[in-house]
Each structure stands twice: as structure tokens, then as C-alpha cells.
Design a protein around this nucleic acid. Structure first.
Lengths: 217, 217
DNA sequence: ACTATAAGTGAAAATCATTTCACCGCGCCG
DNA sequence: CGGCGCGGTGAAATGATTTTCACTTATAGT
């Protein structure tokens, strides 16, 4: 932590109030609440006080948002609310021709240890889906397993990588192969056959690379 | 946790979103933010959804307050925000005749979503080990996979449950069967043979029940 | 066929919160 | 002295959020 600029007495009172308020209420206070606590009648007085805290790097603000206040370096705060573990959405069934809906109705959110996201450029580009069939049994991926998917453009996939595809309304986990201008979905189970699609076939959306697997037994 | 009234699918989605939002932002979401996440255009739709959550005792609301939302019993919930996501140790190789050393030199700690610890009596009794062989390939568990183990007395295991055993210095994942005063370790792979041990054989320590699986690919 | 519940839409009303404007007083420093 | 940062007041504008109203659709139960 770089040594931060010192706070004036009044600024410190405001900062300490914000911290204690967040601990008690699990959310940031409004300007008026801060004012009431410090005996400031004008919200503008508080506004400028908080502005000073922001300028000195103690706090960040989201413009025009109610309670748009955040403690900087909250993870270092002994009263921090969480441990910074990334949380990924578990997506629900989505039709392959409307992949933009993929993230619209998450059924849950799972905390995923950063170890499983190692090497991922953008955590925001990751989500969790459920394997729709047993086509990858040979690779130890079973129907219903939660797969961690890194959403990448199809072009970034390399042949042989395990990837997730939306076929119909089903999430299909397969090995990706591209040859003869066709996307091949290669299963790892005798009872499943390889499928082929044109890269722009709306019946098959290439969701991304499978980088992890979670299962509850 | 007292058994609360069941939530509908939609209500659960809303609740899960609120939880995850609060973990990520350290403050409650607005109605519109919830609506955006669930694909609800009318704030009133969200308003009523949250009203249902309130009626069923999952959240509390402060009237007319921006982000006036609170998770009920957040401090009593073992997986509540202030406790963060539970973190389990990844144990290292340990000899079966010294099982007490199991937890002594953890190689890492993984955050594990509470979903995978559902039904577990004591989170402290859980740890993570790595499958030492491919003996459970047929059940989609492969050598090197991280298995979440709930340490329970051998007597609490039921026949047919997947369990973790320490044999020599290897963590063996197998199905547990008890018959004729012998512990049977039943593999799910043609190339592995069933093993048997006396319950107090120091060459085989029954570590506990396997309740989850994590894999990075 | 009724009725109730769940889950909406869309718009308007009422509050709440943030931001901006104009202006004041104090202490400090060059 | 004049300028500047700090800490205000008070009011008004703007934007965000919650709440209410009227009406819709689908599903399940009696």
C-alpha cells in the first residue's frame, strides 16, 4: 500500500463513519446519513468532504448512483465483506441461435477459486454451464457436470481443445476440430458420433473453451 | 438454518443474483439492476419479486431507501458475506499409517462454493485431495482430479458411496463397501482390481466421503 | 368454468440522492 | 493584504430509486 495522503480531522471522521456504517449495514451510507452523523446540514458539505476522500484515494465513487461509494482496498480492511474470490454465473438453457441470451437468466452464481481461472485474460468472459450429455465420458466429463467456460472467439480455439457448444438448446462439450471449412465436434465416447457444422450455422454456437470442471456427488 | 419457505425458480434466481451482487459490490443492487440481470423490463416486476422474497423471509427491506435491501440472518449464515467463501486446504501426500499428518502440510487452499458443501455438517471437516490413480475412470474421476472430501468416521459411510482412502502414500478414490468384516475398495475401471482391508489395517486409512470434484483442464 | 398465484408490462407519482450554483468564514502563508 | 484550501449553509436542478396503479398472461387447483 503506497503511503496515502494524510486526512484532516474532519475527513477522518467522515471516513471512519463510512467504514463503521458499512460494517453495520453492509452497504454504503448516503450523503445525508453521513451529514447527520457529523452534524452537517448541507449535503453539499458532505459532497465536498467525500470528494476530498476520493481525491486522496481513500474512497471511490460511482457518479450519480445512490450510495455509490466504495472503500478502496477493501480487501485489506479487517472488516472486509468478502475475500475477493471471483464469482461466475451459471447460465441456463439457451437456444443456439440466440447466444446473446446466454447470460441473461443465470440460475446461480458460484465462487470459483482463481487457480481454476489461471491464464484467463478476462474473468468477466467466463461463465459456468452444465454438460448436456455424456458425449465426453471418455475424458471424464459427465452429463450434468458444471464446466467453466472461457468465452473466446472461435478463431482462438486450437484443434483438439475441449470446448463448449450450443446445439439446439443443449450445451455440448466436445473437442474442437476445424478442417475443410467445417467445425467438427468430436466426442470422447463410443456411443456418440462426430458432428459437423458450418462456422456460421445458427444451429451451433461455439461458446468457448472449457477450462475447468466442477461436480457435486 | 431454519427451514424456510421454498422459493420458486424465478425467486431463487433473484435471490442468487442479490447474493452474488452483494459479494461483488459490497452493497445491495437496485431494482433495475436486478431486472437487467434477470431480463425484467419493469421495475414493478422486480418489486413484486423482491416482495415475495421478503414475505418468505429471505430478505428485509427498508421502505423508500435506495438499495434498501438486506439479506436476513446474514451474520448467522455460515456462508454469509462476512465469512467469505469457505476455503479448504489441499492436502499433500501422507502415509496411511500417520493420517493425523494429513492436514499438516497443505499445499494450497481453494475457495469452494457452498453449493458443493451442501449437506455437510462441519465445513472444518472437509479438505481437498488429489486422486492418485485412474481407478474411478468409469465414474468420471481421473488421476490428478481434486476431490472434495468430508472426513467422517468409517462407520458413517454407506455401502456404495464414493470415498477417499489413504493406501501407502497414495490417495485412492473408490466405492466403499463393507462386508464380512472387511473394507472393500471397489474401482470403476476394468483395469483395476478390487482391494480389501481389515478395518484397522494401518495400510489403509479411510479418509472420508467424496462429495465433490474439481478439475482444471 | 371459476379463482388464486406467480410473473410480468408500461407509465406515472412520489421520494430519495447526487450534483451544481452562489455565497460565507476561518486560518495560514508569502 | 490577498489568495487559497478547508469546511461550511441553503436552495435548486438533475437523476436514480422506489412505490403505486391498471392491466396482461400463463399455470395450477377446486
Amino acid at each position: 500500500m503506497p503511503a496515502r495522503v494524510r486526512l484532516t480531522e474532519r475527513q477522518n471522521q467522515a471516513f471512519e463513519f463510512i467504514r463503521s456504517y458499512m460494517r453495520r449495514h453492509r452497504k454504503p451510507p448516503t450523503l445525508r446519513e453521513i451529514g447527520d452523523a457529523l452534524g452537517i446540514r448541507s449535503t453539499n458539505g458532505v459532497h465536498k468532504l467525500v470528494g476530498a476522500l476520493e481525491a486522496k484515494g481513500y474512497v471511490e465513487r460511482e457518479a450519480n448512483a445512490a450510495r455509490g461509494l466504495r472503500l478502496v482496498d477493501a480487501e485489506r480492511d479487517p472488516f472486509a465483506l468478502d475475500d475477493g474470490t471471483p464469482t461466475l454465473m451459471v447460465v441456463s438453457r439457451t437456444a443456439s441461435d440466440q447466444p446473446d441470451r446466454l447470460r441473461q437468466r443465470p440460475t446461480a452464481y458460484f465462487a470459483v477459486d482463481p487457480y481454476f481461472l489461471r491464464g484467463v485474460g478476462d474473468v468477466e468472459a467466463c461463465f459456468i454451464g452444465r454438460a448436456g450429455d455424456d458425449g465426453m465420458n471418455g475424458d471424464g466429463i459427465r452429463k450434468g457436470d458444471f464446466v467453466v467456460v472461457e468465452e473466446v472467439p472461435r478463431e482462438d480455439l486450437r484443434n483438439g481443445e475441449v470446448a463448449a457448444f450450443l446445439v439446439g438448446e443443449e450445451l455440448r462439450v466436445r473437442r474442437y476440430h476445424f478442417a475443410n471449412d467445417r467445425v467438427h465436434l468430436r466426442p470422447a465416447d463410443r456411443h456418440y458420433t462426430e458432428e459437423m457444422f458450418s462456422p456460421d450455422d445458427p444451429g451451433c454456437y461455439v461458446a468457448g473453451r472449457v477450462i475447468g470442471l466442477l461436480r457435486r456427488l
